[in-house]
Simulated scan of single mutants.
Amino acid sequence: MPKLPKLREKKALWGVSAAAVLVLGGGGFVVYESEIADDDEVCCALPPPLYGVPRGPDGEIDVASQSVETKVPVDHDFSLHLRPGGKAEWELAETGESGNVLRAKGVKTVKGTRYFKFRALKTGTARVVLREVDGDRTMTYPIEVKESIGGTSVAEDPEEYYPEADDPLKFRKLDRDFDGTVTVRRGEEFRVANSYDNQPGYTWKIAEKPDDTVVGLYPDANPRVGGSPAADRKDWYGFTARAKGTTTVKLFGCYRCGYDSEPTSAESKKFSLTKTLTVVVR
Rank of each mutant, 00 (worst) to 15 (best):
E164Q: 11
A207F: 04
K111S: 15
A207L: 04
D134A: 08
L121E: 07
A165G: 10
P158K: 02
E159C: 06
A126C: 09
Y202D: 00
G150C: 02
K209A: 15
K170Q: 14
T203W: 07
P158F: 02
T113H: 08
V129N: 06
I149M: 05
E147Q: 15
K146Y: 07
N194M: 04
P200A: 03
D197N: 15
T152Y: 09
L130G: 09
Y115P: 00
S195G: 09
T203H: 13
P168D: 10
E144H: 11
V128Y: 03
L121R: 07
V145Y: 05
P168T: 08
A155V: 05
N198T: 06
T123C: 14
A165R: 05
T140G: 10
P158D: 03
Y141Q: 00
V107W: 10
R172S: 08
I206M: 04
V184M: 12
T152V: 14
D179K: 13
Y162D: 08
S148Q: 03
D134V: 02
A126H: 04
D134P: 00
V145H: 02
G180V: 06
T125R: 14
A120K: 01
T181V: 14
D179S: 15
V182Q: 02
G106W: 11
L169C: 05
E147I: 04
E189H: 14
D166E: 06
S153W: 03
I143T: 00
R172I: 02
E144F: 07
P163S: 14
S148A: 12
E188S: 01
K170G: 12
Y196D: 03
G135F: 12
A120D: 00
R191N: 03
Y141M: 00
E160N: 14
D177M: 01
V184K: 09
K173H: 11
R127W: 04
T113P: 02
G124S: 04
E147W: 10
A104L: 13
D167L: 09
T183Y: 08
K170M: 05
P200E: 06
E132K: 09
T125I: 02
V133H: 07
E156Q: 15
Y161D: 10
P158I: 00
A155W: 09
M139K: 01
K122C: 10
F190L: 00
W204A: 12
Q199R: 13
F190P: 00
F118W: 12
K117I: 05
A207D: 13
K117S: 08
W204T: 11
I149H: 08
T183V: 12
L130D: 09
P142E: 10
G151T: 10
L130F: 13
D197F: 13
T140F: 10
K205I: 03
E164I: 04
P168H: 08
G135H: 08
R172A: 11
K173Y: 08
K173E: 10
V182C: 04
K105W: 09
P163L: 11
G201F: 04
E156L: 08
G135T: 07
V110R: 12
Y202P: 00
Y196H: 11
N194Y: 10
G150W: 02
V107S: 12
